[in-house]
Structure formats: structure tokens, C-alpha cells
Design a protein around this nucleic acid. Structure first.
Lengths: 356, 356
DNA sequence: GCAATCCTTGCAAACGACTGCATGCTCGGG
DNA sequence: CCCGAGCATGCAGTCGTTTGCAAGGATTGC
């Protein structure tokens, strides 16, 4: 398809050096409008427009649109050392949790004229560091970080150096920056309530990695909730990573010996791993073992069986983090704040009363 | 968490104006090395290094690393009018098809030092145009476009102006640019073969939008394959969009009257919509109606029932498109080429012999 | 009618790196 | 011993904008 002959009007390939009219510059606009470039700059610039006589502003703007002038962001950045760009660090864009967050960020920052540079760290601190440096070299105005570890030297140092940044989804200890996350503790508490309400007493937890806040917070919340119900809180296995395969491994360990009647998974991917492990052990969900996930990823309701999960407003997480960053960038916010967005337990087919 | 007291060593908030050491500049390196900035530039630049005496090169580079010098890409871009950045246009990042493609692009371009700017168009030509312009203003060196329509004035004009670009996933007619896509026609042919082999004769098609190549090509391939088997090729409904809800609507229309025994969906999201429609009609997949998807999106095998689908190597699509763009940017490629990556039918539980 | 003031605009110096040209040096051949 | 070639380096302008400073004109108040 379309690999046909050249499409140029003269039958000549237009590819190599087309007579591309060079983009008009501020100087062009200025001379065309009969003013000095400085005046044109001020006229075109929202903040300095008031310094120029309205009639002149009008003339300059007309000429600018007539010529199709667009400011050269590169030149502007060089001068102002701001780039109207923010960097976003995510572990892995192909993890279904993150696309909605990133879209929220892009949408919210886009209306303010910011562009987003997203990079994947694959949970590798080294890659995170080099990506971080690369983005800084590109003069990004700030960061939204979804890769923070509980104790994260990179983030800590950056925060201390005053780099504008906001954490999203994952929090960090002892760090004086704004952050947005779901209310994990409440989500887990509701989950345990739900399972106990169904009659479960023997509940296990496949925890996420404890070096990130989601893993640690959810584990702590699990223990607290179980204790609150007077139940044993030690049926816990920590998964190596937030992946289905790590979830499977952890769940297999949890299922050795007598299986719990319900498993609270650290997130949806781990829950999928639990499904795999149950199947391998010849157990059926929810008849033998109930499973609950976390995050309510897109399409997770389509699983077999449909996964009960804690809905985290991922898009809104992104939007809110963008707002917080804009606050920081505008210099308005002095006091960092941590925003926990409400979550909601969505009950589906993967939880049922225990048979025993 | 972490909203505690200021963390500065003196108990003073370090947020506002930290003693941030200004990033060293080329001039700093030059003076520290006792050479002219021009020499330092040449020493640090791969292409011009040969112009400088090796000993000087060595000295400059040592000083540079000692000072932690990093070139300022903004300044470089201003001078060279290249940005080492490429723009990627996708319809919607939260469509699970695209994250793997984008990651492939980022990974492949990253090793060549390029940064990726991804924007979402939501299938809106207006947004596509404005995003395209914005990216051009940011001096991106080229584009990878996953949003192309079959007849796309924006892309056509850009191509004629010689803007370096590559299409991915979706192709365009009469356009003289390189492109990468899955081998849709073969995938559909294998799908129909599979269904016919199971004994199906009455097969319907929920086609994707016909203004994009995937919809049109797959529809044409469906008709061809059906004719090839001597079967009726007119059980076709075109969906409004590639979404589960549009798939549901289209499938409901297809199911009015006597239902076909199998449905070939234009992609996996449409297949999910078919599941919904079947459920609404009280029909069971695969017992009453078999369903086949396309793309083999992540986690699609986890559906209920597991979806038979045509696996498209999404990540590799991204990687290959990045390679093609690098070729164009390096000036090597003169002749555009269309690369069709092989696809593979993955048979799962959503297809079975017809009961009738 | 004049000085003080304000408003509008122009001038020129940046921002940081690249690059064509010029210069100074070393070296070799005649 | 001198000249030309060639190599290594320096000089200075440039990319397109922004912005502090200053100048000129118009306006105001007395």
C-alpha cells in the first residue's frame, strides 16, 4: 500500500530539499509591523502586553497571524531558562495502571501550555537517575514522579535542591514535597471488612514490594484491619514485583500448606498471578478461595472471574498531581501537601462466602 | 505521610531559593581547561573531535566530567535547529494497543539519544492538527504517526513539505512515506480459515471505522477470504469507533435477525463489545457464537472466555517505526518503504465448532 | 510656559553552543 | 635557510527571544 511512485506534481520526488519557506521570526514580524523586535516581543507576550500601546499591540498581532508567526520555544527557553515542559517518570508505561495517570497529567498540563516528557524507568534506580538527569538537562520545569521508593536518595536530593516536583501514586518518607495517591489504607480496610462480612476468617495477603509506599502502606493497613477484627495477621507473602508472575510465585507460597479462604492482593496484577496460582493448585476462585485486587485497572472487570478490586481514580490522580505541580511552578504553593483521593471497593465475582 | 516539618538541615525550609550551583557551561569548561570555548566544543563533539589534538581532547573531557558538564540541549538546538526530539501522535494512550508501541518507539529512539514527545489526538483531526503544529514549533526532528486516516490532509501536506515522518499501525493511501503495520490481510485470512475449518459457514464481521486503514484493510480481507471459501461476505456491520461500546452497538445490529455462528471483530475492543452484546442477547460464547479479536492486546487472554485473537507484535511495530524514522533523519533513506510485520493467530477459548 | 512625570518605544546585551574564517605554529622540502 | 603546507586553536558572529536601561515625546500640574 502506498509504496507507489513519487507523488510530486512534477513527478519528481519532493523528499530531499523542498522549497520550505523558513518559519517567520520575531524580527520578520517586527519589520513587517514597522516596530522594533523588542516591541513585537512585548506585544505578543501576555505578561508584557500592557507595556505597549493597544494600537501597536493590535497591529503587531495582526501581522503575526498574517505571517503565521509562532514563537520559537527553543530560543525562548534559552533566554528564560524555562521550557514549559515537565518530565514524568513512570516505572513502565505498559503497566495498565499508568496510562490513565499519564493522560490525566497530559490533559491537565496541556491546557496550561505545558508539554510532557514521559520516561520509563523499569523500576531501575540507575535508569531513573540517568533519565532524571537527562530531563534536567532538557531544562524541564518540574517533575511528576510515579517511581518513588520509600527511601529514595535521588528524589530526596532533588527535593533538597529545590527541584519542583510532585509525587503521584507512590509516596516517600521524610520528603518535603507534595504528593497525590489513593487512600490505600481505607481501601484495604474496606476490603478486609468485605471479606470478613462474607464470613472469611483465614485471609492471606500477597503484598507488593515493601520498598515502595503502596506495598508498605497496604501491608500495614492489612495487618491493622485484621487485628481490628481479632484475626491472625501473619498470612503474608511479599511479592518481588508488581507483576502477574511475581504474584503467581508469591501466591503459590501462600497456598502451600492449608490455603487461606481469601487472598487480598497488593494490586490487580498480583491478583492475576493469584488466579494463575489457584489454577495450578486446582483451586477455584471464588468457590475455594476469594481474591481481591487493588487499583481496578481498565478491563479488569472482564477477567474470569470478574475481579473484585479497589477502584483508584487513576486519571484524577494524574490531573491532581498536575495541578499541584502547576501550583509549585507558579510559586504559589509554599507548603507541600499530600492529597489522598478517595477509593471505592468494587465487588464482583471473585469474592464469595467461604465454603468451609 | 511526609507532610511533617521542614527537612532542611537548619530547620529552615529549603524550598524557595536553594543555593543551587548553576550548571557549568561550555565556557566554564573551556577556561578550566585553559582553552577557547570553540575548542572545548569541538573536543566534546563526536563529529568534530578529530579537529582537535588528542591531548587537548583528553584534557577537555577530563575537566568536563570533573565539573559535571552536560551540554545544554536548548542552546544546541537553537544553533543547529535540530532538537534530538521526535513527536509521536497516538489516538489515545489509554487504549491498551498503544502503550507497547510507544514503549518500543521510546526504547529504540532512546539508544540514539532521542527524546519522545507523545500526544493524544482522541481521533480528532483538529486536535491532531494543533498538536502537530505545536510539536513542530518545538522543533521536533520528525514524527511517528499512529493516528493517520486513510485520506489525511494533514499528513499529506506534511509529507509533501518534506517533514520527516513514519506511519505506524495505520497506513494512508497515496502517501510517499515509510510505514510499519501488522500484516492485517493475512491475519484476517487465517482467522476466516480457522473458523471455516471449525465448520462455520455463517460468519459476520464487526468492522472498524473505514476511514482508517485497519478498518478498511481488514474488511476487504474479510470479504476476500469469505469469497475464497465460497461463502457470503455481506454479514458486515461497521462500528463507529474502536471501542467496546461501539462494538457492542454494532454487534447488536449484527445479532438482530438470525445470529451468525461466528463473528470476526475488527479488533479486541470491538470483540469485547461483541461479548457484551452476546450476553445481552442471552447468547453464549463460544457455544452459540464464536468470536475472534485482533491485536492480541495485553491481558486479552484473561478474558472470559479467553479471546482468540491475531497477535500483532506491537512493541516491534514501535521499534521498527523508530528505526525507519532514524533512517530518514540520518538522510540515508530516500525511498520510503512499507513494512508489514508478520502476525499470528492465537487460538483460545472463544472459538469452537458451531452447534448448528 | 516650564518642569516633572508617565507612557511608549528603541537599543543592546545577554542566554549557551556551534562554526566559517583567520591566525599562528610546526614541519618538511628544496 | 626560507617558503608553503597543514594542523591546532582562537575569534567573532549567529541562532531567536527576552529584558534592563535609556531616550524621546506627550501630558499634567502649577
Amino acid at each position: 500500500m502506498t509504496a507507489g511512485p513519487p507523488a510530486g506534481p512534477l513527478g519528481v520526488r519532493a523528499a530531499t530539499l523542498p522549497p520550505v519557506a523558513p518559519r517567520p521570526t520575531l524580527r520578520d514580524v517586527a519589520t513587517a509591523a514597522g516596530v522594533h523586535p523588542a516591541t513585537a516581543s512585548r506585544a505578543l507576550n501576555e505578561a508584557t502586553r500592557s507595556l505597549v500601546r493597544p494600537a501597536t499591540v493590535e497591529r503587531v498581532r495582526e501581522v503575526a497571524t498574517a505571517l503565521g508567526y509562532q514563537v520559537n520555544p527553543i530560543a525562548r527557553s534559552l533566554k528564560t531558562s524555562r521550557s514549559e515542559t515537565v518530565g514524568v517518570l513512570v516505572p513502565d508505561l505498559t503497566n495498565p495502571l499508568f496510562p490513565p495517570i499519564v493522560r490525566g497529567i497530559e490533559d491537565a498540563l496541556g491546557v496550561s501550555g505545558y508539554t510532557v516528557l514521559t520516561v520509563n524507568t523499569d523500576n531501575d534506580p540507575g535508569r531513573a537517575a540517568s533519565n532524571f538527569a537527562a530531563l534536567q538537562a532538557r531544562q524541564v520545569d518540574g517533575f511528576i514522579v510515579a517511581t518513588a521508593r520509600l527511601d529514595d536518595p535521588l528524589m530526596r536530593e532533588a527535593a533538597e535542591r529545590g527541584v519542583p516536583m510532585v509525587l503521584v501514586n507512590r509516596l516517600t518518607e521524610h520528603l518535603d514535597v507534595s504528593a497525590v495517591a489513593g487512600d490505600d489504607a481505607t481501601g484495604i480496610a474496606r476490603t478486609v471488612d468485605h471479606l470478613v462480612g462474607l464470613g472469611h476468617r483465614d485471609i492471606g495477603h500477597v503484598a507488593g514490594p515493601l520498598n515502595v509506599s503502596t506495598g508498605a502502606v497496604r501491608l500495614r493497613a492489612f495487618r491493622t484491619a485484621m487485628q481490628h477484627h481479632g484475626l491472625a495477621d501473619d498470612r503474608v507473602v511479599v511479592a518481588e514485583a508488581y507483576s502477574d508472575s511475581a504474584g503467581r510465585t508469591a501466591a503459590l507460597e501462600l497456598l502451600s500448606g492449608t490455603a487461606p479462604t481469601a487472598i487480598v492482593a497488593g494490586n490487580d496484577l498480583l491478583a492475576i498471578g493469584c488466579y494463575d496460582a489457584l489454577e495450578e493448585r486446582g483451586l477455584c476462585c471464588p468457590d475455594d478461595v476469594s481474591v481481591v485486587g487493588f487499583n481496578d485497572m481498565p478491563f479488569i472487570s472482564r477477567l474470569r472471574p470478574p475481579l473484585t478490586s479497589v477502584r483508584v481514580p487513576q486519571y484524577e490522580l494524574g490531573v491532581e498531581s498536575a495541578r499541584l505541580l502547576l501550583d509549585v511552578l507558579s510559586g504559589r504553593t509554599v507548603i507541600p501537601r499530600v492529597v489522598l483521593l478517595p477509593v471505592q471497593l468494587v465487588v464482583r465475582g471473585s469474592t464469595a462466602p467461604p465454603r468451609r
